[in-house]
């Protein structure tokens, strides 16, 4: 448990990005909560620094109602909302907003396998935009691995935000992935309410939840012979791989 605690990189209240300011894009797969999280972060910034210190941008022209949704939040907060349709548009918009303390960019959700991901990576790279990758705690570990690998090319990937922590049965796989890829965890979201359900990471709580065992009645909990069988199978695979390698071949992955 100490290893996990040491391995988990997080921000604290002294390095809260809403205080430091900057341009941040929220990126990630579909349906993880990018727009809602953008609104929560916007509220956090406005509450501390005032509406004039923030501008909102959306690059999502694809999803029905994406721009409208952010505009509604902008209206409640008294913050301007801009739509940027492409890289040139984004550059012009960011140029206009260069003196704003903080700019938050809501982006289109996309599959990590979509080649648009690399286009988006390039667009943000050209414009000095830091990215925050949103990861849902309800996703499978292997999917999250896939997602992070696709976005790791972002030279300005500042870190990640873990969403739907309230919905996830276990935090083990998502925290494992974050630790392994050495991503810095900026915020944790545990519900749909704007602005309440967004928090700086609470390390003891997260680590505790990650190691908490599944309920006894859960079919996903390993019981009886199962742990042994799982480990035996893993050991057999490893032995197999070793023999292939020593025979001069390559291991199939």
């Amino acid at each position: 448990m100490g290893g996990a605690d040491r391995g988990l990189l997080t921000t604290d209240s002294e390095s809260d990005i809403v205080d430091r300011g900057g341009i941040y894009a929220l990126v990630g797969p579909t349906g993880v909560g990018k727009t809602t999280t953008t609104a929560k972060l916007a509220a956090r910034c406005v509450l501390r620094h005032g509406a004039r210190k923030l501008a909102l941008v959306t690059t999502d022209g694809y999803r029905i109602g994406a721009h409208e949704q952010l505009r509604i939040y902008g209206r409640i907060l008294g913050v301007s909302v801009h739509l940027a349709r492409d890289a040139a548009d984004l550059r012009a918009t960011l140029q206009d907003l260069q003196h704003t303390h903080m700019v938050l960019i809501d982006t289109m959700g996309m599959s990590q396998r979509d080649r648009l991901v690399s286009e988006q990576v390039a667009m943000f790279g050209d414009n000095d935009v830091k990215s925050l990758l949103l990861l849902s705690a309800t996703s499978r570990g292997d999917t999250l691995d896939d997602v992070i690998r696709a976005y790791n090319g972002l030279q300005n990937l500042a870190g990640c935000i873990l969403t739907k922590v309230d919905e996830a049965a276990s935090l083990a796989s998502s925290l494992d992935v974050i630790i392994r890829h050495r991503l810095r965890l900026y915020y944790v979201s545990n519900g749909q309410r704007v602005p309440e359900d967004l928090h700086l990471p609470n390390r003891p709580y997260l680590v505790h939840r990650a190691f908490r065992d599944l309920p006894e009645t859960s079919p996903h909990r390993l019981a009886g012979l199962e742990p042994g069988l799982m480990m035996a199978s893993a050991a057999a695979n490893a032995a197999n791989a070793a023999s292939i390698v020593s025979a001069g071949g390559t291991q199939r992955g």
């Binding site: 809602t36 609104a39 509220a43 509450l47 509604i72 939040y73 409640i76 907060l77 749909q192 309410r193 704007v194 602005p195 309440e196």
Partner: peptide, 8 residues
Amino acid sequence: QAAGLRRL
């Protein structure tokens, strides 16, 4: 979901 926000 924005009830809290509107109140503020």
